[in-house]
Computed example of a mutant assay.
Amino acid sequence: MGYNSWVKEHALKHKKIVDKLLSQGVGKEEIIAYFDFENMQKKEVDFCPLYQKNKKCHDMSELNCYLCSCPNFRFSDEGIKEIETKTQYSFCSIDSKDGAQGIYGEAIHQDCSKCQVPHHKAYVEKHFDLDWAKIMQPCTLDNKER
Rank of each mutant, 00 (worst) to 15 (best):
N4E: 15
N4G: 13
S5P: 10
W6G: 00
V7E: 04
V7C: 13
A11Y: 00
L12H: 12
K13N: 12
H14T: 06
H14R: 11
V18C: 08
L22V: 02
E29A: 06
E29V: 03
I31H: 04
I31N: 01
I31A: 05
I31T: 01
Y34D: 05
Y34L: 09
F37K: 03
M40G: 07
Q41C: 11
Q41F: 06
V45G: 07
Y51T: 07
N54V: 03
H58M: 09
S61V: 13
N64L: 10
C65Q: 01
L67W: 03
P71C: 07
P71V: 08
F73Y: 09
G79V: 10
G79Y: 02
I80H: 01
K81C: 10
E82L: 12
E82V: 14
Y89C: 02
Y89W: 05
S90A: 09
F91Q: 01
F91C: 02
C92I: 06
I94N: 13
S96P: 00
Q101L: 15
I103R: 12
Y104S: 10
G105C: 10
G105Y: 02
H109P: 02
Q110M: 15
S113W: 07
C115E: 01
H119N: 05
K121Y: 08
K121C: 04
E125M: 13
E125L: 08
E125D: 11
K126F: 13
H127K: 11
H127I: 05
F128R: 05
D129Y: 05
D131S: 13
D131F: 04
W132L: 04
W132Q: 01
W132M: 04
A133M: 05
K134A: 12
I135S: 00
Q137R: 09
T140I: 14
D142Y: 00
D142R: 00
N143Q: 09
R146G: 01
